[in-house]
Design a protein around this nucleic acid. Sequence first.
RNA 1: GCGGAAGUGGCGGAACUGGCAGACGCGCAGGACUUAGGAUCCUGUGGCCGAAAGGCUGUGGGGGUUCAAAUCCCUCCUUCCGCACCA
Length: 857
Amino acid sequence: MSDYNPQEIEARYQKIWDQQGAAHADIEPLRSAKGAARQKYYVLEMLPYPSGTLHMGHMRNYTIGDAIARFKRLRGFNVIHPLGWDSFGLPAENAAIQRGIHPRDWTNANIIELKRACQRFGFSYDWRREISSCEPEYYRWNQWLFLRMLERGLAYRKRSRVNWCPQCMTVLANEQVVEGCCWRHEDTQVEAKEIEQWFLKITDYAEQLLEDMSQIEAGWPERVLTMQRNWIGKSHGARVRFAVEGKVAAAGNAVPNDAAMHIDVFTTRIDTIYGATAIILAPDHALVPKLLEGNPQRAALDAEAHRLKQKTVRAEDVATAEKEGFFTGRMAVNPFNGEKIPVWCANFVLSGYGTGAVMAVPAHDQRDFEFCRKYGLPVRIVLEPPPGVAEKMATVDGASLAESYTGNFRLRGSGPYDGLISEEAIRRMTADAEKGGFGEGKIVYRLKDWGISRQRYWGTPIPIIYCTACGMVPVPDDQLPVLLPPNLAVAGQGRSPLENVPEFVNVKCPRCDGMARRETDTMDTFVDSSWYYYRYTDPQNDRAPFDKDVTAYWAPVDQYIGGIVHAILHLMYSRFFCKVMRDMGMVTHDEPFLRLFCQGTVLKGGTAMSKSKGNVVGAIDIAEKYGCDTARMYTLFAAPPEKDMEWDERSIEGCSRFLHKAYRLVSRHAAWARTAASAAGATAFDAARATDAEKSLLRRAHQTLKRVTHDFEVRWHFNTSVALLMELVNELQAQEPLEKNINPAVAKEVLEIFVLMLAPIAPHIAEEFWSQLGHSQGLTHASWPAWNEDLARAEMVEVVLQVNGKVRGRLTVEAGLPEDELSARALGDPRIAQWMSGKRVMKKVVVPDKLVNIVVA
RNA sequence: GCGGAAGUGGCGGAACUGGCAGACGCGCAGGACUUAGGAUCCUGUGGCCGAAAGGCUGUGGGGGUUCAAAUCCCUCCUUCCGCACCA
């Protein structure tokens, strides 16, 4: 057993770092021209929600970030590494209601606990920059930003059908609906409800959100960009206008001819329009009631439309769900050929996408095919299928077609467009539609505006006042923040809890001084986390969210680290806010996060740790049992950071053992290495006359340094870095007793390189080693060493000898041996000769310093 | 259904540009030291054959390219993730 006492060492250096402000970002560059040369590095972990349970899963995220922050400091960067709290939100409110305590108290108690754990782990956060989104000093700027968006037409109010979670008793954003259910209550189906809502116009930025991905492509995981691209869902197509016939076809009853009535459809396959055999509207399309006017079955059909509209299906059933619909009784005219086709209404057409109406081309769209077959609508083939598919299709006519053909090919049955290939037909027909005034090329997005209203207490009040005389009035800037009332209000059925607080609701109109009411909804907490990374750069500012010039130095974030769960929501909203703030002149860049890293989950028993599953490994418990350096090291060692890792209580012992071993080794030799090296050292030691043991040790140290540097700079595989450090210590141990075998100057150099590489991973013990090696200034003042290529290079290399691709021997030779010399030596090897006897050499493959392969027959 | 990622010992994982598969660690087995060991140190540890030297085999299955494949290509299987009536 060594004397290594992690508890004592960790407490001691945490105190010293604290006193030194070792984790503080240097603000000097902002003040002086001299400092401006110092390059900043902004490393950030995603704003944590301060929930009650605190386990190693959380700590992994911070351990990765801290290793990077410490590494970059050693590399000379002016590092900013802050942490704060995403402290508004439903869990606090729910916990508060259950336990009868105020959300603020519950939240703050959790923050204290979480902060204590972060400090116990020695994470180098600049705590002067700590923020908490539930504090008025923070959320007043949510309100300020909201008002700016309102001025720019980016915030608006509309009555809309929303996703309502009966468990949360609140509205959910589209992104918060997972497979038709609430993202927080996987078993609770989301209901449709009509309600007045505030929206942010993220759709205005759809194109930029897509385009600017080119700026971050190199630094973001491909799959996150793919998910965002899918979510934005851009598609190119055409809008085509179909006139509606002025007669009720089914009953034959004449109604007034409505020349103005027409239906716009959106299609990506205008080339198939000659095969359209119906027009289909979403059940809640605005024209449906009008189309049903005068229809003798109107009441029944209204009811049917309502039924189809209300029917929500679980997402996994959606693709297989029965398509249902009805004929409206009206006919529309295909503008390309004048053909009259029936207008239907069906559940599988979505009102929120495109124009909410489609043309049904059953021969060339599988959904249309299923629908038309079911209701006996004709199927007409207007594309020649390509060879291969042709055998199956060309011989059949629409009536006997088994499934739709959705590919691209040559047109037929399409009048003047016959013989064109799909792509060309789309171009020409779109142009013709435009010329004819009945259509145009159109791009549509799947992305919808961001509904931010929440009927909840624990969030940022939306700074709006409704005056009976003046209407909707924004709260003037000088009246911000609109404070949450201190007393917790309890939620009513679907109404905001704040409705029940008269002293909050009743207010004088800022314009006319008359009686008015406040908006009682609060903001989605994703608003809080959409711009907090700027606030860190100037956290005390009480005149603005942040100072433009201060933020210009620190932002954008160079390295962002967080879970893949936020791939769409948080990251898309933040990118949107960044662009809005850029347009407002507050920041100068297009993208807030240059590089993104998504770490894997920490599993216990194969599933993510969670209180409800009862499989949490408490962070503080681990720090107390092994010390935080061991916990940090194990977290980095067990798996590459992007992969999920299983927490194995036995495996952590290996890291504990390693640090004890290292402690024994360093503490046993530190005094000798530093005194003997300075007494006899620098001048006496001559690298050219080094012993084999010394050369080998120096080579190992410099090779390790080279590879660890690479792991930190580009690969981000800290597990291999830790393995390399273990190998280095093993080699040092193999050279024991060092006093006898190794020149102290060599020992000192190797030990120092080791300690500096250890510093980002296990900073406390590294700091102790550094001090034992005679450095009165801490690692804060140290620099990452540069490797010496000459020392790293091996003098002797082992070359593999193969015969017909099989390893038959090995040869240790001088490095850099020419090919012919190497192959001559290989052929001279007795083991190789044995395998070659009686055979003819067909070919020799020589890879210098690596291998010789002799092919014989 | 569409798209993406992955599959290597008993386990976590390594192998960076096609060039010694299994680094490092866990676990396991044997040994040393010891009053003791769950401390520490040493040795061994993919499978099969063999006393050993050594041989054969081996990176999800099958096929291919190559002097050489965990790595490249084709195909199939499995797992995980994302999207899912988006016209």
